[in-house]
């Protein structure tokens, strides 16, 4: 009953035998031990499990591992390059865009996709773009500021003053 899949996650290629019903998020967490991608619900509302599949943000609880065969996947663990935080990670840190941190990886991956499609979003566009991700701690205001920070930085604009 097991199927062989080959996926590239954060630049490393993995080949695994998986059950057809295994969700991608459980594959990442339980098979590859990439526990940065979280599970916050079972109805695809919360977005905590968001990863990039072939460059696009996808809720990994809505994808079976077998459907990801051949895909390039980026998780939160793969976002920083050579020890350098991605501007979004920097923005969340600078702007206090997280409290308990549980929604943060999914938030960042969704925001990554958003900025890819719209490098200079308005506040309204950011709020709209993050609608598929729930945060229970921050009230979202500092998440919006974090995305604005990243947008500025990625476009080579001077960034808004951080908090220190």
């Amino acid at each position: 009953m097991k199927h062989q899949i080959t996926v590239t996650v954060n630049g490393t290629q993995y080949t695994s035998e998986v059950e057809p019903r295994l969700l991608l998020v459980h594959y990442l967490r339980d098979v590859l031990n990439l526990t940065g991608t979280h599970v916050g619900c079972d109805t695809s509302q919360c977005g905590a499990c968001t990863v990039l599949i072939n460059g696009e943000a996808v809720k990994s609880c809505t994808v079976l591992a077998v459907q990801a065969d051949g895909a390039e996947i980026t998780t939160i663990e793969g976002l920083a390059k050579d020890g350098q935080l991605h501007p979004l990670q920097e923005g969340f840190w600078e702007m206090h865009g997280l409290q308990c941190g549980f929604c943060t990886p999914g938030m960042i991956m969704t925001a990554y996709d958003l900025l890819q499609k719209n490098p200079n979003p308005s506040e309204e566009e950011i709020r709209h773009g993050l609608e598929g991700n729930l945060c229970r701690c921050t009230g979202y205001q500092n998440i919006v500021r974090a995305v604005q920070y990243a947008s500025d930085k990625m476009r080579g604009q001077p960034v808004a003053a951080g908090n220190d």
């Binding site: 990439l34 526990t35 940065g36 991608t37 998780t75 939160i76 663990e77 976002l79 920083a80 935080l85 990670q89 969340f92 840190w93 997280l98 941190g101 943060t104 990886p105 960042i108």
Partner: peptide, 8 residues
Amino acid sequence: DPRMITGR
């Protein structure tokens, strides 16, 4: 934050 924004 560093551990939380990097998935660790």
